[in-house]
Amino acid sequence: MISIFTKNHYFTRLFLLAFWLSAPICAQQMVVVVNVDNTEIITPTIIKQIYSDKRNFWATGQQILLFELPVKDKGREIFAKALLNKSAMASQSDWSNRYVKNTIKNKVKIKPHKLVAKFVSIHKSAIGYIPLFIAEKQKNLKIVMMIEQ
């Protein structure tokens, strides 16, 4: 009886550990941000068009400067799933493919989220996505979309 109880306890711990490990993937609230001086009306549809390289100019005629997070960043996975309905890996492959095909339109920079916040706050034509808590700390940013998980 004792050995069975111990075994069950062991499995319970394993289960809890697995649950804990999987939890952070769903924990991050991501937001799409632009510079506070950006006066465009930016809808989720327009954001999807930008991140699928269909749109590369703002309505003002200014070229869009687009920021992505590194592929291994959980925020990238959340963003790609929610907006493009594909994995972060697939979305990065798409950018690489557009680059070698010479059909890429947008200027894409891959930066960690803190730098995305900084750069978007500096460049009027920039767009990026970052965790909500970073966006709240950074001045000169405008949140244009909350990403539902």
Binding site: S93, S96, N97, V100, K101, T103
Partner: peptide, 8 residues
């Protein structure tokens, strides 16, 4: 014709 690169 354009979208032919082996990694993709």
């Amino acid at each position: 014709s354009e979208d032919h690169y082996p990694p993709f």
